Computed example of a mutant assay.
Amino acid sequence: MRLSCVIPAYNEAPRIEAVLRSVIGHPAIDEVLVVDDGSSDGTAAVAARVPEARLIAMPQNRGKSWAVSVGIEAAAHEHVMLLDSDLIGLGAEALDALVAPVRAGRSDVSISLRGNSPWPWRAIGLDYISGERVVPKALLGPPEALRALPRFGLEVYMNRRLIAKQARIAVVRWPGVASPWKGAKRGRWAGVKADARMLSDMFHTIPPHAAAAQIMAMRRLRS
């Protein structure tokens, strides 16, 4: 299985280099693509310091859905690993665990469950909006469809396609990996507003009752 790693990034200059140093040279990852989503804080310059990664710099901020679509379109291989660019504690062992179920054929898709995921997701054993996944490009649909999504509609859209295809899902626990809360990165009030925008985008992609149905369907599909 040949694997492309796609990392969308927006204003993550303090954190992205550590993520890149974790994935570069990993034996399961054949290429690394960073899509800088019009950052204003020098994220692209930091990523450019890691020459083994291919940097795609977008001229303006278009949101995560669009940035991921650009990375998927540029990816050379039929399987992609999607990673958020702000992860803390990411290492080779966590990457091995995320790749292993798909590489071994035990699942079609793998999804992370980070150590600091909200407690309801840890309680049910599924973070249905996790940004860390290994998935075949064929299951994601055409990049043009991703570009039509709201900025943060990507994960619930992917879930809808996985459920429609009855894809086998492996949930991979990442107890040592965390994603910082938006409030910690941007300040409390800015973090609240960012979370509200994310929820709005999600529920413009699918209504709230459909999100609950997604969770139940995905739990049934766990391999």
Rank of each mutant, 00 (worst) to 15 (best):
131 G>H: 05
88 I>A: 13
57 A>C: 09
91 G>P: 07
203 F>S: 02
37 D>W: 02
119 W>A: 15
7 I>K: 05
31 E>N: 02
194 A>N: 00
208 P>N: 05
64 K>D: 02
139 L>T: 07
86 D>F: 07
150 P>Y: 04
190 A>T: 00
127 D>I: 01
41 D>I: 11
4 S>N: 09
168 R>I: 13
102 V>C: 12
163 I>T: 04
149 L>Y: 00
197 R>H: 07
185 K>T: 12
189 W>L: 15
206 I>F: 02
157 Y>D: 08
58 M>W: 04
53 A>N: 08
145 A>W: 06
165 K>C: 12
17 E>G: 14
42 G>S: 13
115 G>M: 09
144 E>Q: 13
106 R>E: 15
131 G>D: 06
129 I>R: 03
23 V>S: 08
15 R>T: 15
150 P>R: 12
21 R>C: 15
208 P>H: 06
209 H>R: 13
37 D>K: 01
56 I>T: 06
146 L>Q: 09
157 Y>E: 08
103 R>P: 14
2 R>W: 10
157 Y>P: 02
95 L>N: 07
109 V>W: 00
106 R>K: 13
37 D>V: 04
202 M>C: 00
163 I>C: 03
101 P>H: 10
72 I>W: 02
189 W>C: 06
77 H>K: 05
9 A>D: 06
45 A>T: 12
116 N>A: 10
105 G>S: 14
125 G>W: 04
179 S>F: 03
32 V>E: 05
23 V>K: 12
166 Q>V: 08
6 V>Q: 08
38 G>A: 07
200 S>H: 12
191 G>S: 05
76 A>C: 11
65 S>P: 05
213 A>Q: 13
38 G>W: 04
119 W>L: 14
140 L>Y: 00
112 S>E: 01
72 I>G: 00
170 A>Y: 01
149 L>D: 03
128 Y>H: 02
1 M>P: 11
30 D>Y: 06
190 A>K: 09
198 M>V: 01
160 R>K: 11
161 R>L: 13
17 E>Q: 15
154 L>E: 02
149 L>A: 04
208 P>Q: 09
15 R>A: 15
51 P>N: 12
203 F>C: 06
142 P>I: 10
220 R>W: 11
93 E>C: 06
165 K>D: 15
62 R>T: 10
66 W>T: 07
13 A>V: 10
215 I>R: 03
166 Q>R: 15
187 G>F: 09
83 L>A: 08
11 N>Q: 12
112 S>G: 14
87 L>K: 06
58 M>E: 14
68 V>D: 03
117 S>H: 02
137 K>Q: 15
60 Q>K: 06
43 T>Q: 09
80 V>W: 03
181 W>M: 09
62 R>N: 11
20 L>W: 09
191 G>K: 02
210 A>Q: 10
36 D>G: 10
49 R>C: 15
115 G>Y: 08
187 G>H: 09
10 Y>Q: 04
143 P>H: 02
77 H>G: 07
158 M>W: 00
222 R>M: 05
146 L>Y: 06
7 I>R: 01
86 D>E: 13
74 A>N: 10
81 M>F: 13
31 E>Q: 06
214 Q>D: 10
144 E>Y: 05
144 E>C: 07
43 T>R: 07
157 Y>K: 04
59 P>N: 08
32 V>L: 08
174 W>Y: 11
118 P>F: 03
1 M>D: 14
170 A>R: 08
11 N>V: 03
5 C>E: 05
